[in-house]
Amino acid sequence: MKALYTILLLTVSNLFMTFAWYGHLQFKKITWLHGLGLVGVILVSWGLAFFEYVFQVPANRIGFAENGGPFNLFQLKVIQEVISLSVFALCAVYIFKTDKLAWNHVLGFGLLVAAVYVIFRKW
């Protein structure tokens, strides 16, 4: 159950992260945000990043093996990276609508899944 909570919290965290890091690139489409200067954009992004950490920190604490969770640090990081790239790809294609998912993206994600296998495998 801790593994599921960790993955769910990391997924929500990465939604906020994606919008904090890349959402401001879409501000031109939102009338009331269109005129924000760089400082305003940074403040909005920091506000979103706060919620990223609200979900990420508990996810890592719950999931970390030394806190009774199922994952070591390497496993937590690889899980986070796969979730991060998956959430980003979905947002870029379906929410931001700036890119299309191509074969090389799918191949790259397949290689990330292979990385997860290698990290989790007990040698």
Score class of each variant (00 low, 15 high):
22 Y>E: 12
37 G>Q: 08
78 V>F: 15
91 C>G: 02
45 S>Q: 00
25 L>V: 06
2 K>C: 00
42 I>Y: 03
88 F>D: 12
80 Q>R: 11
63 G>W: 08
53 Y>A: 12
49 A>P: 00
99 D>I: 06
39 V>I: 11
45 S>P: 03
16 F>W: 07
60 N>T: 10
80 Q>A: 15
96 F>L: 11
82 V>A: 14
92 A>K: 10
98 T>N: 13
51 F>A: 01
18 T>S: 09
73 L>R: 03
65 A>K: 15
107 L>V: 15
8 L>Y: 04
61 R>Y: 10
6 T>V: 08
69 G>P: 03
99 D>H: 09
51 F>D: 02
83 I>P: 03
19 F>Q: 14
81 E>S: 14
119 I>T: 09
49 A>W: 10
106 V>C: 02
112 L>Y: 15
59 A>L: 06
120 F>L: 02
102 A>D: 10
51 F>G: 00
84 S>E: 13
41 V>Y: 01
104 N>H: 13
2 K>M: 10
72 N>T: 10
28 K>A: 13
99 D>S: 10
19 F>N: 09
13 S>I: 05
10 L>W: 06
50 F>G: 01
56 Q>K: 01
89 A>V: 12
104 N>L: 09
104 N>Y: 13
70 P>V: 05
97 K>D: 04
81 E>T: 12
8 L>A: 08
42 I>E: 04
41 V>S: 05
21 W>I: 00
20 A>L: 01
103 W>D: 05
3 A>D: 15
93 V>Y: 13
84 S>H: 14
